[in-house]
């Protein structure tokens, strides 16, 4: 067995990733403290609510009620960290050229479907990929758009008079709030899928977000002798096609 160190994530990306994780966590928590004070959103038809955001048991379990002022104070502190870290990440990906590995290309949407089928064990072969597969490219780019959306809708809600034009751009104060909320639900769903995928991908992939490299294992090189069969043709014993 031969081991090889393969560089994967630059230090800057690891830094942004791990700063964002707790900061976004605090933003979602403080956002909940704020949302509780007027928790009117639900999914359903007419007066029947299929899904109420959120049930009382949920608030109770997380000690959410009657903490609006605390929520606002934390939200308006951590918004700066979320914003600055996000800006730094976007600037870094642009300046380092890392964006080439992240942005979806014209094949990505077709390939993402194949990735999904493969992940669900419907399709056997894995589509080829660079650093990220097509589904990852789409997800990791979408999350940036979502982040920008959160900042802009957040600003629109925060200063709806002074930034009236921004508020109007999102369809008014009420709509800006709904978008701001929906994006947060989006982060939670992203997080859940992300965690599942990281667990499935295994330790080597996970630890690369801390160390920056993956360990690539290859079988020891041994002279491969062509096995002569009755046809006299050399047979390829590796999975790779012969070149």
């Amino acid at each position: 067995m031969k081991k090889e160190i393969v560089k994967k994530h630059p230090l800057a990306i690891r830094w942004f990733h791990w700063v964002n994780f707790p900061v976004l966590g605090v933003m979602i928590w403080s956002g909940l403290l704020i949302y509780w004070a007027n928790d009117v959103y639900k999914i359903g038809f007419g007066s029947t609510a299929l899904l109420k955001f959120f049930p009382d048991s949920f608030y109770k379990a997380l000690h959410i009620p009657y903490r609006l002022s605390e929520g606002m104070a934390y939200h308006f502190l951590f918004m700066w960290l979320f914003f600055l870290n996000g800006i730094a990440y976007v600037l870094y990906t642009i300046l380092s050229g890392e964006w080439r590995l992240l942005l979806p290309n014209r094949h990505s949407f077709k390939e993402a479907w194949q990735v999904l089928l493969h992940d669900l064990h419907i399709r056997k072969t894995k589509p080829s990929q660079g650093k990220y597969n097509a589904a990852q490219r789409i997800a990791y780019s979408a999350i940036i758009i979502m982040g920008i959306g959160s900042i802009l809708t957040g600003l629109a809600i925060y200063k709806p008079v002074q930034l009236g034009w921004l508020c109007a751009l999102f369809g008014g104060y009420k709509m800006a709030r709904i978008i701001h909320f929906a994006l947060t639900i989006g982060y939670v769903l992203f997080f859940l899928i992300h965690i599942i995928q990281v667990i499935l991908a295994g330790w080597n992939n996970f630890q690369a977000m801390i160390t920056g490299f993956e360990v690539k294992k290859t079988e020891d090189e041994q002279p491969v002798l062509p096995v002569v069969e009755t046809t006299g043709e050399p047979v390829n014993r590796t999975e790779e096609p012969l070149k």
Binding site: R67, S69, E70, A73, Y74, F76, L77, K159, V161, Q162, L163, G164
Partner: peptide
């Protein structure tokens, strides 16, 4: 109230920042 000195400072700083960037004449 429920807001500690550092958080209070942030709230005040935010107001200073935003009232400088934006005009309160809107």
């Amino acid at each position: 109230g429920r807001t500690s000195a550092p958080l209070r400072k942030v709230l005040n700083t935010n107001e200073a920042i935003f009232s400088n960037i934006l005009s309160d004449r809107h």
